[in-house]
Every structure is written in structure tokens, then in C-alpha cells.
Design a protein around this nucleic acid. Structure first.
Length: 474
RNA sequence: GGCGGGUUGGCGGAGAGGUUACGCAGCGGAUUGCAAAUCCGUGAAGACCGGUUCGAUUCCGGUACCCGCCUCCA
């Protein structure tokens, strides 16, 4: 069996992965807070974990992996939208309206992640469907002295969990000294965090032993992972920015509520994304969503390729240049594997690279060496979620535009090939190559690759065909 | 201030204590009316300063610079 090695943030080292139950390998990925379209940074863990899940299914069996990714659908930005809709006269309770708003956002999220070729998880729990379980967990924490109720709030008592700060390498005292902590009169200790907070009439809320209110951030992941994966599971993943406080707080809650469990054994954290060497931020004007890219006709497959071309634990820089290079490689491989049946198994080097702490960049580099074996190339690329039959529509998009002048694409290229052949024969007799060269460079200009050999002329569409320019040559 | 990540050839980007990464671009050749494509060949690196070692780009320490988290942002 392939030995998978993963870098575990908890132990700060690369370790051999040994599932608790090989019949049911369990993984939890922190999903999005569904207040808006997913940005490119949101897509990185999704695509990376998609590959990990494929690897786990390959090693342990398709039916022996459980992948959970949540939707956090309680959030102040969502609340604000719901409230403004209600004030604008929308019917229904606030709880109905946030449900509506988040339903819409989840639809976008699904469409965008689908476009990147990421498989849907086995479970996609929504926080608002697990309010009761969160309340149960909080009650237990209070009963056991790990949390306390105060002024309509429930708070986690950070000092009652001795390992608090271990995951992120912080100490409670240092953090308080850093003074970047919200001071609140109802907190026993400034580091204590909110498990439950009160809602007024303008906020969605649920009945609880502490009054009408809503859960704090963090508790939803603890409650949902417990419900779906149990008190001990294998892998918990997310962006490195979640390491603190989100994951630290999850660990504290879960460890105290279920002291016999291990919670997550392996913690995987992906590094952040940059754009052209800078942090992606609205203030820098370089912020964009996955949908923005798709709308700019950057194929989902190209986005996926770029996201996988940097190791997940390194900062990933999105550049237009990388997208172009990815497009060229994918185009070439798709041409090469057209009509080819994939080999039964991917190249073992691809599996090896992935098994070594998910070295997706290394795996992609193996693909470059498989040009002589298209069947193997296809099987290997598909293992990474590339060259899938359902993701190749982008290749015909540009050519399809020519059909607007009512000429089928194939006929366009056939006609031009004939034209070029005739010109060539004439030129070879007259030794006047001017007209031939003119057509040739016009074709090249339009993104068509012109191949001329002794046996004849062949026109091959490239990744950046300019349909308009080509249209003028008809 | 505390914690963490990064720095590889013109560009992107991996692995490995000593042996070619790989891709793009470049250069030389074959081929071509000229190109393109293809094929063959080829130069080019490891931020800086020390240490360990027979030998380090790879391990250790320090410096510089970049980035992230500590602010419900993956």
C-alpha cells in the first residue's frame, strides 16, 4: 500500500498517515462563510483537498473515505443583508431571509467549485441545521466547568484547557500582553471567547438556555464534525489564517466536550494566495472572485492547474503569465490525447509525488514527461482532475464564435487549408511567395498554427484563436 | 512586540548530503523557398554570513528582505 506522508501542523513535522479506521477515513475541511462569491483564495484549499481526497480514495477505496465541508451560514454580514431585505418589505422571518440569502450564495459556490473540477464532499452541513447540537455541546461545556453563562452570552473559559495555544504556538499570557484582545465586561478572562451571543429583534436568533441568540464563530465546526465524523477523526484542513483563533478554539471546545476523543489527528494548513506578488485585497484593487476569472474566459481547468502548480504549504502567486502557461500546456495535452482512451492506471510517479505531502507541483511535472504516452498522460492528468472530458469546452469556445457567421468551424479550417495549399503550389511554380506568406502570417496572427511539410498543409487551432481575425480571412 | 511561512538558473517551480528535475524562454543543428511544428543537442541556479561534513543548494545557527496570523479573511 502507498504510504501517504502529510505535514501535521499539530506536531510541526511530516508524518506517515495512519487512519483511525482504514474502512472509513474521515476528513473535515473548513468551508466558506456564505455571505458572498468565493474569491480565488477560497478555492485553493478546496482544490488541494479535492486532490487529497482522490488520493485517499485511491489508497483506501472509493467508499472508504468520508469528506465533510461545512457552510457557515450565520454571520453578521449575512444578517445585515437579511435585515435590509426585511426592511425593504421582503416577507418572512429573519431566519427565513438569511436562509434565502445563504441558499443563493451556496448555489454560486457550488457552481464555481464545480467549474474548478472539485468533487462535492460527502456531507455539506450548514451551521443553522446544527443549532441544537451546538447548544447541547455548550451546555456540556458549562456543566463541566469549561464554559460559563453571563449576560445572555456563553463563554469558553480558556484557562480551563491547559493546551490552549498549542496548535498555533502561542501562550495565553503572551497574547494578552500583546493586548489585541477584545475586552468585555462579561468575560472572566480577556481571552475567553464567545460560544453563544444574544440577538436583539433585528438579528436572527434561536431559543437557548441563555435566551434568544445565535452561536459564536468556531462552535459550528466542533458540533458538525462531531455529529458527522465522531469525537476522533483523521484530518482537519483549512487555510493557515484559520490556525488561530478558529482552529485553536475548535480544539479547545471539542477536547473539553469530548475528553476521550482526539478530535482531529492531523491538521493540514495551506498557505495564502497572492496576486502578482502582492496580497490580494480589495484595498489594493487586485481582489477577484473565481467567477470574475471564469467570466474573463479563464477556464476552470486552467485555474485548477495554476492552483496545483505550487505546493500547498507555500505562498501561491497568481499571475496572468502562469494562467497563460497553464493554458498552453493543457491545450497541447488535450490535442495530444484527443480520442485516446486513458490508461488503466496513472503514472506511479504521480501517486508517489502526491503521497509525499501532496506534492501537486511535482505531480504536474511528471505529466510533462509523458508526451510520448498519451494514454498514460491522460490517466495521470485525470487523477489530478485535469483533462477531464467535461472540462474541455473552453477549447472550442473561441472557434465556436466563428459559427456566428454561419460557417461550421471544421469547414473554415478545411477551406483555409485548401486555400493555403493552392497558393503554395502556385508559389512553388512562380517562385513568388508573397501571397502565400501573407496568408500564412495572417493565420498565425489569428492564433492558428500553420504546419507545412512535404506532404501537405495542416492548420491546427491554438489556445488563443482570434475568431474575428479568422473571420476576415474567409 | 509574539507566532509562523518564504527566498533556487532569464521566468515558473520540485526533489535529493555527493549523480540531468521538469516546463517556458534562449542558443546550436536537422528539416523548410522562408517559417511554424517536430526531432537532436546545449549553456544557465540555489539571498547573505558562519558552522557541521571528505563533500551542502540540501542539515544547524545568525543576518537581510518579502509574506501571513495575533482584528469572525481560505
Amino acid at each position: 500500500m502507498v504510504e501517504i506522508r502529510l505535514t501535521n501542523t499539530k506536531t510541526r513535522g511530516k508524518e506517515a498517515f495512519a487512519p483511525i479506521d482504514p474502512q472509513n477515513v474521515r476528513l473535515y475541511l473548513c468551508g466558506p462563510t456564505v455571505y458572498d462569491r468565493a474569491h480565488l483564495g477560497n478555492a485553493r484549499p478546496v482544490v488541494v483537498i479535492d486532490v487529497l481526497v482522490a488520493l485517499l480514495r485511491h489508497v483506501y477505496g472509493v467508499d472508504h473515505v468520508t469528506y465533510v465541508r461545512n457552510f457557515t451560514d450565520v454571520d453578521d454580514k449575512i444578517n445585515a443583508t437579511a435585515l435590509s431585505r426585511q426592511q425593504a418589505g421582503a416577507p418572512g422571518t429573519l431566519e427565513d431571509l438569511i436562509r434565502e440569502r445563504t441558499q443563493e450564495t451556496i448555489g454560486w459556490y457550488h457552481a464555481d467549485m464545480d467549474a474548478l473540477g472539485a468533487a462535492r464532499p460527502d456531507h455539506e452541513p450548514r451551521a443553522t441545521d446544527y443549532i441544537a447540537q451546538m447548544i447541547t455541546m455548550i451546555e456540556k461545556l458549562i456543566a463541566d466547568g469549561h464554559a460559563y453563562a453571563r449576560d445572555g452570552h456563553a463563554l469558553f473559559r480558556v484557562r480551563s484547557y491547559k493546551d490552549y495555544g498549542k496548535l498555533s504556538g502561542r501562550s495565553v499570557d503572551d497574547m494578552i500582553a500583546g493586548a489585541r484582545v477584545e475586552v468585555a465586561p462579561f468575560k472572566e478572562d480577556p481571552m475567553d471567547f464567545v460560544l453563544w451571543k444574544p440577538s436583539d429583534a433585528e438579528l436572527p436568533g434561536w431559543d437557548s438556555p441563555w435566551g434568544r441568540g445565535r452561536p459564536g464563530w468556531h462552535i459550528e465546526c466542533s458540533a458538525m464534525s462531531y455529529e458527522l465524523l465522531g469525537e476522533s477523526f483523521d484530518i482537519h484542513a483549512g487555510g493557515i489564517d484559520l490556525q488561530f483563533p478558529h482552529h485553536e478554539n475548535e480544539i479547545a471546545q471539542s477536547a473539553c466536550a469530548h475528553p476521550h476523543g482526539d478530535f482531529a489527528r492531523v491538521w493540514l494548513h495551506n498557505e495564502m494566495l497572492q496576486v502578482e506578488g502582492k496580497k490580494m485585497a480589495k484595498s489594493l484593487g487586485n481582489f477577484f472572485t473565481v467567477r470574475d476569472l471564469l467570466d474573463k474566459r479563464v477556464p476552470g481547468e486552467v485555474i485548477r492547474f495554476v492552483l496545483l502548480s505550487t505546493h500547498y504549504r507555500k505562498p501561491m502567486d497568481w499571475t496572468d503569465e502562469k494562467a497563460r502557461a497553464a493554458e498552453d500546456a493543457l491545450w497541447e495535452w488535450r490535442v495530444l490525447t484527443k480520442g485516446v482512451e486513458p490508461a488503466a492506471e496513472p503514472d506511479p510517479r504521480v501517486i508517489e509525488a502526491l503521497a509525499d505531502d501532496l506534492n501537486t507541483a511535482g505531480a504536474i511535472s511528471v505529466l510533462y514527461t509523458l508526451k510520448d504516452d498519451p494514454a498514460k498522460l491522460l490517466a495521470s492528468a485525470r487523477f489530478l482532475g485535469l483533462l477531464r472530458p467535461d472540462m474541455g469546452a473552453w477549447m472550442t469556445q473561441d472557434l465556436a464564435a466563428i459559427d456566428s457567421v454561419s460557417v461550421p468551424v471544421a469547414d473554415v479550417l478545411a477551406g483555409l487549408t485548401q486555400q493555403l495549399t493552392d497558393l503554395r503550389i502556385a508559389a512553388q511554380e512562380s517562385k513568388d511567395y508573397a501571397a502565400l506568406d501573407a496568408l500564412k502570417s495572417a493565420l498565425t496572427e489569428a492564433g492558428i498554427e500553420v504546419r507545412m511539410s512535404k506532404t501537405g498543409v495542416e492548420l491546427v487551432a491554438g489556445p488563443r484563436v482570434d475568431a474575428q481575425k479568422l473571420g476576415t480571412l474567409l
